[in-house]
Measured scan of single mutants.
Amino acid sequence: MSIQHFRVALIPFFAAFCLPVFAHPETLVKVKDAEDQLGARVGYIELDLNSGKILESFRPEERFPMMSTFKVLLCGAVLSRVDAGQEQLGRRIHYSQNDLVEYSPVTEKHLTDGMTVRELCSAAITMSDNTAANLLLTTIGGPKELTAFLHNMGDHVTRLDRWEPELNEAIPNDERDTTMPAAMATTLRKLLTGELLTLASRQQLIDWMEADKVAGPLLRSALPAGWFIADKSGAGERGSRGIIAALGPDGKPSRIVVIYTTGSQATMDERNRQIAEIGASLIKHW
């Protein structure tokens, strides 16, 4: 067993022997301040990774656009098919120029040779490549099948209805392509620590998230040296922004954090800054 596999296998073990965790309302004060600064709703939840206990939450059962955070769930569904012998990570998928959609920095470079399922998941999570996500959605049967996968996990809230990039439209009061912070946090925890996926697939999923290259201005910008984070960000229309993450000190994750916002007129930089400040408060009061 590799060191990384050992780390993920012992996530519940280490967490069980940690000192009790206590909620700190100071972080919620910052979440509410972010709402004021952005002029928009902000949803927040913080779960203990081992027990699933909610440590703090704000608007945990209000719907927010998922945006690209759905790509972690998508690759979880792909990995479940791999575990069941219905898919192979090494299978190569070929596609054409007509398949390319807006923001496809990886797939646009491989029109000639195609990409493997493993490479597509890596591109979808680490670079948020939209064509990679659409190609992977095709392998599982489309958005409705991802929703069905989530329902089978016990998540009857999260739903995907459309493809990239239309799913980022974020129309107010439109339930399409949305989740709730509580539902997303619980589902992410199941994917990373539950028995739904094999140990190898859980490790692969967290490795992809740990290698995320496009979430630097968010929670990662607030992390002290030595902290662990595996995350996936999302951005959408109407001032929408979000991030889902597993993080913790001492090089291992111990909490799940989900943050979503929508309806702001603020710039992307300002949305990023507010999420980073929430992260800084979380870490300060850990």
Rank of each mutant, 00 (worst) to 15 (best):
P249E: 08
S281H: 12
Y260T: 03
L146W: 05
R118F: 11
R162M: 05
A245L: 03
T139E: 15
S233C: 02
R238N: 15
V78E: 03
T179F: 00
I171D: 13
A280H: 14
A124G: 07
L192M: 15
T139K: 08
K232D: 00
L79Y: 02
L55N: 07
D174K: 03
H151P: 04
L218T: 04
A280K: 15
S68G: 00
N168G: 11
V157K: 15
D269A: 14
E26G: 12
R41K: 15
T131G: 14
E175K: 12
D155R: 00
K32I: 11
G90K: 14
I259Q: 01
D174F: 03
P172T: 12
A148G: 14
E26D: 09
I140S: 05
V29Y: 04
A185V: 06
I54R: 10
F13T: 12
M67S: 09
A15L: 15
E102V: 11
L38D: 06
S201H: 13
A185Y: 00
I278T: 03
V82Y: 07
A123I: 04
M153T: 11
L111D: 07
V117I: 10
V21Q: 05
F13Q: 05
A215R: 04
D174P: 02
R271E: 05
V117D: 00
A132R: 00
W286C: 01
S80W: 12
N130R: 00
G114V: 03
D129L: 00
K190S: 13
P165C: 09
K109A: 10
H5A: 09
A124R: 00
I275C: 05
C121S: 04
E119Q: 14
L38T: 09
A9H: 12
L135R: 04
S122E: 15
L196K: 15
M180D: 11
T193F: 10
D177Q: 01
I93P: 02
W163P: 09
S80F: 12
G85C: 08
E164G: 00
L38P: 07
M209L: 08
H156F: 11
M180Q: 15
M184P: 00
Q204M: 14
A123D: 02
H110T: 05
A183Q: 12
V8F: 14
L191C: 07
R81L: 09
L73P: 09
L150G: 05
L135S: 04
D33T: 15
R241V: 03
L150D: 01
L167H: 03
V72S: 06
T147R: 11
D99H: 08
V214A: 08
D231H: 04
E46H: 08
F13W: 11
T158I: 02
T198Q: 11
A225L: 12
N152A: 13
S68V: 00
I93T: 05
G52D: 08
I171M: 15
T186S: 14
R176H: 10
L191W: 05
M184H: 02
K32S: 12
L192I: 15
S264A: 08
A124S: 10
V78W: 03
D269K: 12
L160Y: 02
R118W: 15
R189K: 14
I278Y: 01
G142S: 06
